[in-house]
């Protein structure tokens, strides 16, 4: 248990200290640690977390830390992960605020390094999105639904609203499929298309 709490604290501290840009930028590191290496989350549960972080108010990093911590080790896990997500930023900003209260950053190498990290994170997210796409977009319905939702996001529709619409559409689709499965079983036909 203590080991899990430490893993949560340490992983979220690492994410907060390394990842620039906030929000979904941390997804690749979360996937690497909790899905691929430690097998504490499945890829589907990772998507549940993404959906949750976009619908519940609050900053995305904190939402992700709390929900993953809760899933893996209960309330203590949520606290450990949240503390990890907050700790490095808190210390770094405190140092900057104490040392350079009025400073605006303008060193070209410093700015270059940050631009480089943002570009690198773009590649990492693209790799994660690739994998998520392969696992999620299994049929025609999924592809069309995801394309429509993506178009809505590109038109500036609020992400929380997109998740809510997706939940409504997904629930109705599952209900229709379940009905079809029932009818097929009654008539003793072949295996219907799986949902």
């Amino acid at each position: 248990m203590l080991k899990k709490l430490w893993l949560l604290f340490f992983t979220f501290a690492k994410i907060a200290a390394l990842v620039l840009g906030g929000g979904l930028a941390m997804l690749p590191v979360i996937e690497e640690t909790f899905v691929n290496k430690k097998k504490l989350l499945t890829q589907e549960e990772l998507l549940d977390v993404v959906a949750l972080t976009q619908t519940v108010p609050g900053i995305i990093a904190a939402n992700a830390a709390v929900s993953i911590g809760m899933k893996i080790a209960g309330f203590a896990g949520a606290l450990a992960a949240l503390a990890g997500a907050v700790f490095p930023s808190f210390v770094i900003i405190l140092i900057i605020a104490i040392l350079f209260p009025g400073l605006s950053p303008d060193n070209p190498y410093w700015l270059g390094a940050f631009a480089g990290i943002r570009a690198g994170v773009t590649g990492l997210i693209a790799a994660t999105a690739w994998k998520i796409g392969k696992n999620t977009l299994k049929g025609t319905f999924e592809c069309i639904a995801a394309a429509v939702l993506l178009a809505a996001a590109l038109h500036g529709i609020n992400p929380g609203l997109i998740i809510i619409v997706a939940i409504a559409v997904g629930s109705i689709y599952c209900r229709i499929c379940a009905g079809r499965v029932n009818r097929a079983e009654k008539s003793g036909g072949k295996d219907p298309e799986k949902c």
């Binding site: 930028a25 959906a51 773009t122 997210i125 639904a145 993506l150 998740i163 997706a166 689709y173 599952c174």
Partner: peptide, 21 residues
């Protein structure tokens, strides 16, 4: 059903994040 839909929405938002980044 809820989670099935939420995951589709989440996947779309991850693709969106790639474009934004």
């Amino acid at each position: 059903g809820i989670l099935y839909g939420a995951r589709l929405g989440a996947a779309a938002l991850v693709f969106y994040a790639v474009l934004i980044f």
